[in-house]
Structure formats: structure tokens, C-alpha cells
Design a protein around this nucleic acid. Sequence first.
DNA 1: CTCGGTTTGTTCTCCCGTTCACAAACTCCT
DNA 2: AGGAGTTTGTGAACGGGAGAACAAACCGAG
Lengths: 227, 227
Amino acid sequence: METRAVTARTTPESARDIPEATVARLPVYLRALTTLSEQGTATCSSEDLAAAAGVNSAKLRKDLSYLGSYGTRGVGYDVDYLRYQIAREIGVTQDWPVVIVGIGNLGHALANYSGFRSRGFRVVALLDADPKRHDEVVAGVDVRPFDHLEQIVRDHGVAIGVIATPALAAQDVADRMVGCGITSILNFAPTVLTVPAGVDVRKVDLSIELQILAYHEQRKTHAEEPA
Amino acid sequence: METRAVTARTTPESARDIPEATVARLPVYLRALTTLSEQGTATCSSEDLAAAAGVNSAKLRKDLSYLGSYGTRGVGYDVDYLRYQIAREIGVTQDWPVVIVGIGNLGHALANYSGFRSRGFRVVALLDADPKRHDEVVAGVDVRPFDHLEQIVRDHGVAIGVIATPALAAQDVADRMVGCGITSILNFAPTVLTVPAGVDVRKVDLSIELQILAYHEQRKTHAEEPA
DNA sequence: CTCGGTTTGTTCTCCCGTTCACAAACTCCT
DNA sequence: AGGAGTTTGTGAACGGGAGAACAAACCGAG
């Protein structure tokens, strides 16, 4: 990460100062715009888009202002134009080759997930350590031995890896991924990964989400009793 | 010690005022403590536990302080004792019946996910609108028609529902869930759900996580060029 | 061309969360 | 028993994000 706060930012159209919270919402806006576009909507106000994305309209406008001035006062936003601008900013206008390691139930689901392909993410390989899986074909891609990782990453220029293995294997897989040049990892294994600086890790934990719901649920039902 | 509960939210006096960010981390601590316990560790310092959970030790101590004073100065925390306290606070010491709607690839993965059962979440029913799936048995539970939702929720006292359907069906499913008394929903469908106040919705979106990684990845490779 | 209505982009303020730093409290060793 | 060394719990500073509010900018009617 660039820690030096360079004040001479003479790049007007590429304001590289987007807060992390905004980055996390841009894909939501992108999806809402796609839905609007498919419904035939040509332009929309920040109020409309905010409603479709499930956020506050002031927050939406501030988020978009980090990208530039893509709206028209008194009118709103051109749906397709804004959609392209957000897609370009996120980077989903280019092609992102992805490898998925661990073809269990979750790996199957990920390999078949259409939401990846439609946003520029192309699954170039499915890897699994278990030889019994190596004759399977999932979502049109055949499962290959985990040892092929280095060659596949080199051949396809893979920068993003997805870990869908059991928890015990995850750190080893991450180490191998980092070792052959992968710099972004999406981790579905329920474990904390240790990676060197410069490598991004995002974690999706299915049971944690349920536990958060359980906490609030417990307080709801408990609130009625006087203890 | 006594947190000044000046801001009287909708929670009565017995419920403590745990920040949302802390609640989201408690399951992580819980898992780290379970791992430590399985490794035979009896006590640990906040530094140890923070390392295992991947957070700052000061943050960890502050988080735990919201629950109470469960550590011993100069010594650390008793692993099993702290683990129980956190589990009780989250609510995973009790049994949570759960229904899963939508038995596609993701629904299969969720039904088979061992991380649910081991934390008190019991899948009491798998529902799907497609009659062709109704003779399947997934993870020891047979798939039933979606119309059975009301009866199942009533019979088992279900409070938590999981939506793993396509985006188009998600809002209808959510409405039906809310209608029969479910007050917590975990949504895997890529759409924004509208629910009445008092119902909690948490969203897990697989492609959004990848897009966030892509954004940062794009900036990494772009940073080398002087533009 | 001008004026009223509309909507964006931005500023300002408040609040939540993170982090630092340190006193309080406990153990162990002599 | 007392002091040295550790570690927790917490007050306080700090940074970032959320939301309200408003000026600037645009369109269309007359």
C-alpha cells in the first residue's frame, strides 16, 4: 500500500482516494444499475438508485462524487453511462482469471455461480488435492491436481485465488498461492490466514453470519422477560 | 466498569450495550478459543488470542470488556471459561432451528456445512419450489415443497431463515418468511431485500467480495505506470 | 431571455470505532 | 512479606464514515 500521502494529486479524472466503505458499496450500485438498465430505465435520480441499492441517497451521492461528476444537476444519472464508469473504476471491465482450490460442496457452488462470469471473472482452473476428484468435470472445467497451481497461474496470469478447502489446508494453500504470485485471496475456509504485506485477503464465513443473527435474535426474545 | 446506559435504545436494562462491530468479531474469538482449546491450551493472554483471531490486542481487550471482566490481570484468560462466556453471549449455547430455502448448488453446500451444526444451528427443513427436487435427500434431510414453510416454522419454532434462491424469487421468499414469524434472515441471493422493522437481514454476496478484490488488484498493477 | 422547479455535488457536524497509554491487579521469586 | 515483572481493563485522543443541509447547476415553460 502507498503510505506516502502525496499532496500533488494532479490526476483529476482518476481521484485515487476512494474510502474503503465506498469501494464495498460500488458493486451494489453496479448491480442496481444493471437491474434498472434491464428494466429499460434510461436515467435515474440519486433517490431512485439509492432505493434500488438499499442505501441513503446522500450517502450514494457522496460515494459517486469520489469517482467524479457523472451526473447532471436537475436531471440525474444516465444509467448506462454511470454503470460503465463504476464498472471501469472497480475493474470489472477487464477479464480476471481466477483459480478455485477445493472442490467440495462449496467449491462446486462457486464454480457454477453465474455471478462470477457475468462480471469478468473467469474460472480458469479448479484444483483439488484429492486424486479421486481429478476425473470430475465441474461447470465445464476439469478438476486438476493442486500441484498444477504454479503452471496454471503462470500460463493464465492469475492474480486472484479462491480458497474453498477445509480449515486445516487453507494456510498451506494460501502460502502456495502467494509463492507463485497471487496477490488477492478470497477465503471461505473458517480460519485466519497469515499473508505477507501487499497481499489482500477477504474472508467470507458462513457460520459467523448466522451467529451474528443469533445474537440479535436472542436479545429480541429475551427482551420481553424481566430476567 | 458500569457502562452508562444513557442512550436508551429499544433494549431494556438487562441487555448490555455491545457495539455492532464487537458483535461481529465475537464469533471469530469463539473460533480462535476453540482452536486453542483443542490444542490443549488452558490459558492465554490477550496477545495470544488476538494473534489467533487476527486482530489488535487492544481491540480484543476492549471487545471482551463489553461482556464483563472474565480475565485475570497478570495471568490472562482461561480458555474454556472465556469460550463459554462468549458462546453464551452470542447465544450459540442454545439450539437454533433453521430452514434453508433454495436447494441449488449453494443450498447443497449450506445444508452440508458442518460449521452450522457444530454451533447449535440445526437445519430442520430444506425447501424448494421445484417439484423435481422433492424426492431428493440432502445431508439427511429431505427436500420439501416451499408451501410447507408455514407449518414447519410453526412446528419447530424457527426464527432464522436462509435464502439461497435465485435473485428473482428472494423477495417473495422473504415475504413469506416474515409472514409466518421468522425475524432473522440470511440472504445469499444477489438482491436487496425489503423487510419490516424488527426483522434482521444479513447479506452474503459472493461476487461482491471478488469485485472488491479486483478493485484493489487493479490499483496494484496500475500503480507502477507513471501515467 | 428569465424564472421557477429539480437534482447534484459538497460542506459541516456528529457519532462510532480504533488505537494508545497507563493505572490497577495479579503472580512469582527472593 | 515485599518487590519486580506481567497482563488486564479503561479513559482519552484520533480518524473515518454517516447523515443533514445547502449552494451550484441544469431543464423547461412562458
